[in-house]
């Protein structure tokens, strides 16, 4: 397959807003001394390797899915954010979206 059919096209830095958000959360935690970058790279590499076993990752959404999964597991291990906590907060956000009239800012 060709890697670079559109490598000259100007691409947005982050394809989706959540890519930028999850990136920024990780960098912020690193700068606060809560995640070392070499540990992060090792963990993230391992997730990418595992995800890439059965299919070829394209470096877009799948790349940031692996990023998010890695971050969640690091935070769970540190007991900084436990899976139950994330699950509940995620549900709270979903409910907030569903209850907020279209066009209004969504708040918890």
């Amino acid at each position: 397959m060709s890697i670079c059919s559109d490598h000259n096209a100007p691409n947005p830095v982050f394809e989706n807003p959540w890519h930028a958000q999850v990136f920024a959360v990780t960098v912020a935690l690193n700068e606060a001394g809560r995640i070392s970058w070499s540990d992060w790279a090792a963990r993230f590499s391992e997730t990418l390797r595992r995800h890439g076993l059965n299919r070829e990752l394209d470096g877009g959404d799948d790349y940031f899915m692996a990023w998010l999964e890695t971050l969640e597991s690091v935070l769970a291990e540190q007991e900084t954010a436990l899976p139950e906590e994330i699950h509940e907060m995620r549900a709270a956000w979903e409910e907030a979206y569903l209850k907020t009239p279209h066009g209004m800012p969504v708040r918890l």
């Binding site: 959540w18 958000q21 959404d61 969640e72 935070l75 994330i86 907060m89 995620r90 979206y97």
Partner: peptide, 24 residues
Amino acid sequence: DHDHPHALLPPEPALRVKALETIL
């Protein structure tokens, strides 16, 4: 507006990232 009476639900990973952000 009539297609989306409520705010558009972000994709699943976006909700998870929002949850992390709020918790942290």
